[in-house]
Design a protein around this nucleic acid. Sequence first.
DNA 1: GATCAGTTTGGAACCGCTTCCAAAGGGACT
DNA 2: AGTCCCTTTGGAAGCGGTTCCAAACTGATC
Lengths: 333, 333
Amino acid sequence: MATIKDVARKADVGVGTVSRVINQSDAVRPQTRKKVLQAIDDLNFSPNLSARRLSLGKTWQIAVILPYLTLPSYVERLRGVQQEIGSTDYYPILYSVGSPEQRDEYLNMLSEKTQVDGLLIISMPLSRQQTRKITRNQIPAVLIDAADPILSHIVVDDVAGGELATQHLIDLGHQKIAYLSDYLDTPFQSSGKDRYQGYRIALQKAGIPFREEYLKEGPKGREQAYQTALQLLTHSDPPSAVFTSCDTKAIGVLDAARHLNIPVPDQLSLIGYDNIRDSEFLNLTTISQPLLESGVQGTRLLLDLVENNQQGQLSVELPLTLITRDTTGPAPG
Amino acid sequence: MATIKDVARKADVGVGTVSRVINQSDAVRPQTRKKVLQAIDDLNFSPNLSARRLSLGKTWQIAVILPYLTLPSYVERLRGVQQEIGSTDYYPILYSVGSPEQRDEYLNMLSEKTQVDGLLIISMPLSRQQTRKITRNQIPAVLIDAADPILSHIVVDDVAGGELATQHLIDLGHQKIAYLSDYLDTPFQSSGKDRYQGYRIALQKAGIPFREEYLKEGPKGREQAYQTALQLLTHSDPPSAVFTSCDTKAIGVLDAARHLNIPVPDQLSLIGYDNIRDSEFLNLTTISQPLLESGVQGTRLLLDLVENNQQGQLSVELPLTLITRDTTGPAPG
DNA sequence: GATCAGTTTGGAACCGCTTCCAAAGGGACT
DNA sequence: AGTCCCTTTGGAAGCGGTTCCAAACTGATC
């Protein structure tokens, strides 16, 4: 492989001049430039990236840390990252995380600098300690789909989302609205709680009293939701509408309604959250968040940090949208 | 940022010794090692990757060139790559290709060496010229889901797959079998065409005449397939079975059948291709190709090339399987 | 043709690591 | 204590770029 020295010799110039030509920089006399270009072409020269990086102290690489691509939402956010980064000189290195241990391993390694110019962390909240390590080492970092007390991040306003969903049901005339959720009190993920808060706000604004028996928490998953819904719907005074904290749960409720022969949306309106792929197929009304957009904006934010070496936290809140499909309708009676 | 020199000074040893400790190499006296480790810890030292790469003449990075992640099959193959590469010291850099121009740009750049240690090219046939450039520069490269006259590659026998699918329908007594596909004549992908060939072969073997109006080409995607299927199924003499070149399209056809109130599989049998994740949920009969496995094997092959610097082409053909689910049944009447 | 300011150029020094070679150190044996 | 061989160590050289500085060149002006 030819080096810059070879080119310099061949073109009968100094290495500095070759470097200047390569970097399209400054003033090189046209005839000199031509000589150099010719030599580069003759020798099929291409600069060594590692050398350039060492010299420049910059890698032009961004670490993208995200869960192993099992969920469509991860893929979608990644697509956003790619879309945005594609128009820059940076390249993404994928760190696909399959377990908490692996996550910690990667994060540890990457917070030691000199590996990449910045960290983009997707759908993965950080521990206090990890956050501290990153800030201490002054590594530009942005979280997508996770909040952080110190680092910049892109999130959605789940309180507003909860309100949006509930308001939709209220607008349809519903008064007896249940909320079915994952456990509200977990230290790891606050979205369920936020959505619940939105639910309460919407009720309050509409002057509908909150009813304890319409709030159901439980473990994650469709099956769990199915069981809970069976109870809820056979209650002596059952709700006419259910808002679930995620689409997976909504599907469980849909199963239960079908099992109990309760027609949806005639007898029961149902709204989920997240707009997962299955929801489209099942025609589930839901709240959608801008997944791709989160990747785009997160990348943009990170590159800003990297390039301008800006300090300070920036947190962006993306808007949610109501997707009206076939599982919500006017309140019966 | 601390360098190896700082560590050496602090531990009162030579830089060579520090390097030896970092690389867990050779013989360093335990007490010396301890001193060095202490200094490394004190200074929060972490070696500069660019320097190391320059010195070693190796990047530990693999370029993964693949189409923008629109199709689940791309994602699935990528997952295979990640799974396999995760257990090594290498890391993938994603080059997501959105257009032929971009593909050429990336390939050109990457064939110039010193950027990465190897090229993994997914779902993207190369031109003669590109192949030549890569071989001339002696860059280890492997194609997944595309054949090549010179470079190693992982493929499936799509002609056999097309035949397998069609034969399945014929076995069920179908005579009016449509084939719905991406555009057949594209320089970008040949699998659609191969599958089509298999379709024709199966028809011929069974003595069923080919009918022009049962062949539908069109752009990628579910929505497109939906539209096409609406036409096809409202034809005066509609097919009793449809074979689509991919599951995404099959799902579109399923939508159309539902929209037209055509029961599947009673009135219409439907077989897809690829066995994407959604197919399982939808109980779609399909031809399964080991997508994830292709990523795994391709990566393994490439790393072999990289590490052993082996020459010679290796081409692996992965087996296809018929997955019988609920969308195919006996021909009506 | 001498002077001068501005432009262009060559090349040493540097980025931070690995590795090779020679030198120093250690222990077993005479 | 001296010898020998093996282990351990220090540090210079090299990887291939960029950049800074001083030197060389340019041509306009007197």
